[in-house]
């Protein structure tokens, strides 16, 4: 068996054509979980990050939190959450949100903190209130960093939602985990490839978004390719 055989066996399996185990349905589930987790994480983390970045307070706590979050093993969090609170979509959503939130928090804080202080002073000097400075000056300037953080979070959640299939979540991870359990290699590889496609697709989708989030005049100055520190 080679790659093409596996892929065609995966795609041509009648169960993958229609019904609850169909490819379209699984991709939809995966995207729905990802979107839901990102939405909650954004609602929690972005306002907090903006505030921390603007006031400069709690920056140390943010760095510490981001470091800790990076060190926590996803699989452990997911299995523990399910054991403690029975399986439900909400239970699995909590670790996903917990993983996405730190990237967003750090990106929002770093982005706002990175605004040129002179620009900020000038905005205050022209009579804008702090709230106006934050939303009209700092937020637009922070947008590329913030979007880069959102990209990191999206890719993380897509990958982690796959792991969460181990405890019974739907989505593409089902193919990977079920295929491994039943030694059905085409299914496992097919699922894995779909996850890769989804992750790479999300990554590519963000590139133009990040680029066009700044007005043309400001674009030339920003050429750092790697917003890795916002991880």
């Amino acid at each position: 068996m080679n790659w093409l055989d596996w892929i065609s066996a995966f795609v041509n399996d009648p169960a993958h054509r229609s019904g609850p185990d169909s490819i379209v349905h699984r991709v939809g589930e995966h995207l729905a979980f990802t979107g839901e987790a990102l939405l909650w994480a954004s609602l929690l983390a972005i306002p907090a990050g903006l505030l921390i970045g603007y006031t400069g307070r709690g920056a140390f706590a943010v760095t510490a939190l981001a470091g800790t979050a990076r060190a926590l093993p996803t699989l452990g969090l997911v299995t523990l959450a399910v054991l403690l609170a029975k399986i439900s979509d909400l239970t699995v959503l909590i670790p996903l949100v917990a993983l996405a939130a730190p990237s967003l928090l750090v990106a929002a804080a770093e982005g706002v903190r990175g605004t040129d202080p002179q620009v900020r002073d000038a905005a205050l000097g022209t009579g804008l209130t702090h709230r106006q400075v934050l939303f009209r000056v700092c937020l637009p300037a922070a947008l590329p960093t913030l979007l880069a953080g959102l990209r990191t979070a999206t890719v993380q959640v897509i990958a982690t939602a796959t792991v969460a299939a181990y405890v019974g979540l739907g989505g593409l991870g089902r193919y990977v985990i079920d295929g491994l359990a039943t030694k059905n290699y085409p299914t496992t590889v097919g699922g894995a490839l779909l996850v890769v496609l989804l992750a790479v697709g999300a990554q590519l989708l963000f590139a133009p978004l990040i680029r066009y989030s700044l007005p043309p005049g400001a674009r030339a100055q920003r050429r750092s390719l790697t917003p890795k520190e916002s991880l």
Partner: peptide, 26 residues
């Protein structure tokens, strides 16, 4: 050289761990 290298590694970084492990098994 850096632009293409950075692009490759950005894509690699986006690959989910489980998926890559599985693809390598054979």
């Amino acid at each position: 050289l850096y632009q293409p290298v950075a692009l490759v590694f950005n894509v690699v970084y986006a690959l989910p761990g489980v998926a890559v492990f599985v693809v390598l098994i054979p």
